[in-house]
Design a protein around this nucleic acid. Sequence first.
DNA 1: CAGCATCCGGGTGGATACTG
DNA 2: CAGTATCCACCCGGATGCTG
Lengths: 138, 138
Amino acid sequence: MEPRHTEVTVSASSSAHAAPRYDSVDCRRVSQLLARVGDKWTVLIVQALGGGPKRFNELKRLIGGISQRMLTLTLKNLERDGLVTRTVTPSIPPRVDYELTDLGHSLREPVDALGDWALAHMARIDAARERFDQTLAD
Amino acid sequence: MEPRHTEVTVSASSSAHAAPRYDSVDCRRVSQLLARVGDKWTVLIVQALGGGPKRFNELKRLIGGISQRMLTLTLKNLERDGLVTRTVTPSIPPRVDYELTDLGHSLREPVDALGDWALAHMARIDAARERFDQTLAD
DNA sequence: CAGCATCCGGGTGGATACTG
DNA sequence: CAGTATCCACCCGGATGCTG
């Protein structure tokens, strides 16, 4: 792991508010990235490719529920961002393999962190939603 | 431009290629959460509230560029998910304070991780995009 | 000050049909 | 098999105007 900043993270405790680690400009970029990563399929594809190179229809089956249009588009975006490589083998029938780059692999770490958070707190969120929707029904 | 990036020592917690840490169902939920978190304003609001409780227009000014419609909607979603509390002080003029819950604060950690990733690799992504767009222009 | 209601333009994403 | 092309429904989100 990179020994980047030793700054204290929030860890929901006594020292209420952590200093803002990002200025507003940074937040925009982060927000943009999250919008890209947070689109409907990117994470699914990255996670699917986390297990190694995959072919087009292999990915399609693996993910399930994705249209080939969206698979194509999302893969193209990932390739454009340098997160995925596209390797064509001009045979008949043609063969195309998609694989995560180092950059793509490195993305899995923070995404997994968010995944862990989601799994750890999903129950609380669902409960909060039910409570909220319930008190609205009055 | 040599990829001089710290090859993530995945041996720490999870291995790169081996067992997926999430099944497909988990991935859906993670994906859904990312879609929520990755919407246009959620992260900006969470980060703004990271500095402590804020009032409605205070948030609006702080974030800048957000319409009150979206601020209202996003705050309501955050409240529904139990990430933010809404405290009304019935005075004239009325006063409403928004504050991160413990759950909301805990979200900042993984989000910051993604933010660090974005800031660390944004240059590479931009470069990759330029290269990609360039080779398409041929 | 802190919203809600309404209208509306653009983008996202599914379904379908066709190609090399 | 691995796409491209087209059409279209939906919804996100901005602008505006009005309330308590």
